[in-house]
């Protein structure tokens, strides 16, 4: 196996891992969304919960887009 092919193979594995990580972040965002929906109906949950959920969701969204940019750049280099 030539070094170039080996590199492409490794790259492909990394890209799959990135994709799996992005999907994990998406599931986390889905959970945060349900927590925020719950906070509407349950006034026992503090409004701070909603604030934290929005902050975390924003963070996850930024991370996902950063990873996607990284992903696309890596794919271009392949």
């Amino acid at each position: 196996m030539s070094p170039r092919v080996r590199l492409r193979h490794r790259m492909s594995v990394v890209l799959h891992m990135v994709m799996a990580f992005i999907i994990t972040l998406l599931l986390g965002q889905l959970w945060l969304f349900t927590v925020t929906i719950e906070a509407i109906g349950d006034r026992g949950l503090s409004a701070t919960t909603a604030t934290v959920a929005v902050s975390c969701s924003l963070l996850a969204c930024s991370a996902i887009w950063a990873l996607i940019r990284l992903f696309l750049r890596a794919e271009n280099q392949q």
Partner: peptide, 21 residues
């Protein structure tokens, strides 16, 4: 598609939080 789904979740979370506030 994953990226846009993430944005959709973020918008939904913001809307729900705005309603809570």
């Amino acid at each position: 598609f994953l990226g846009l789904t993430s944005v959709a979740f973020l918008v939904g979370t913001c809307a729900a939080a705005a309603r809570r506030w």
